[in-house]
Design a protein around this nucleic acid. Structure first.
Length: 196
DNA sequence: GGTGTGATCGTA
DNA sequence: ACGATCACACCA
């Protein structure tokens, strides 16, 4: 049925990888909560030294080290003093690029997701933002650098292709002049889990 | 539906 | 100081 994406799938620029991740399954085999599954419906691409909106813009640091490593790993960062956000590391040829997982449609393990996100009133509040998605799937800084091919967090293809015509827009949350002109956000049109 | 604001702390 | 954000208040 669903098969794990091979490492070669990730070995390209984030701008090319990002739309291909739409409709793929994000799966976390959690030691206590069991199997958590959500379908990716919104992503953003971040590049390296040429992208002022990217954490990699000013070169490698302790925080962004994973972005400069091999593709197919998870880059998890802490922001606003309280939130974790998860990225997929893409190709690197002496530079860095990654895809921010912004929203997903919850499919399995909703009980645990609701337990970890007690403030989510409706189902579409569970994973409709990068920090919500990480929280619902139990992803924190301890998963930074994890191998998405080996697990426990993986990305699977269950046969549903990306949308033929994905929604496109500028990236969210960037101040003006920091790469906000790039149309590097993609989403599944009409999906209720896409962030507002 | 939309807009505006406070929370909270690691990073550069 | 400033975030690759969220939740909540308030208005419509």
């Amino acid at each position: 049925m669903a098969r794990t994406l091979a490492r070669s799938f990730y070995a390209r620029e984030s701008v090319d990888l990002a739309p291909e991740l739409l409709n793929k399954l994000l799966v976390h085999r959690h030691p206590e909560a069991g199997r958590l599954v959500a379908r990716i419906v919104e992503v953003e691409a971040y590049c390296g030294s040429d992208d002022p909106g990217s954490h990699a813009y000013r070169g490698p640091t302790r925080r962004n080290a994973t972005m400069f490593g091999p593709p197919g790993r998870l880059y998890v960062y802490f922001t606003y003093g309280m939130h974790w956000c998860a990225n997929v590391v893409a190709h690197r040829d002496d530079d860095a690029s990654a895809v921010l997982l912004r929203a997903a449609a919850p499919l399995e393990g909703l009980e645990a997701m609701r337990r970890w996100r007690p403030k989510a009133r409706r189902e579409r509040d569970l994973c409709s933002g990068p920090a919500k998605l990480a929280q619902a799937l139990g992803i924190t800084g301890e998963h930074d650098g994890d191998d998405l091919v080996r697990g426990p967090i993986r990305i699977l293809d269950d046969g549903l292709p990306p949308p033929r015509r994905p929604g496109v827009s500028g990236r969210v949350g960037l101040s003006l002049g920091r790469g906000d002109e790039h149309l590097w956000r993609w989403f599944v049109p009409g999906d209720p889990n896409v962030s507002r």
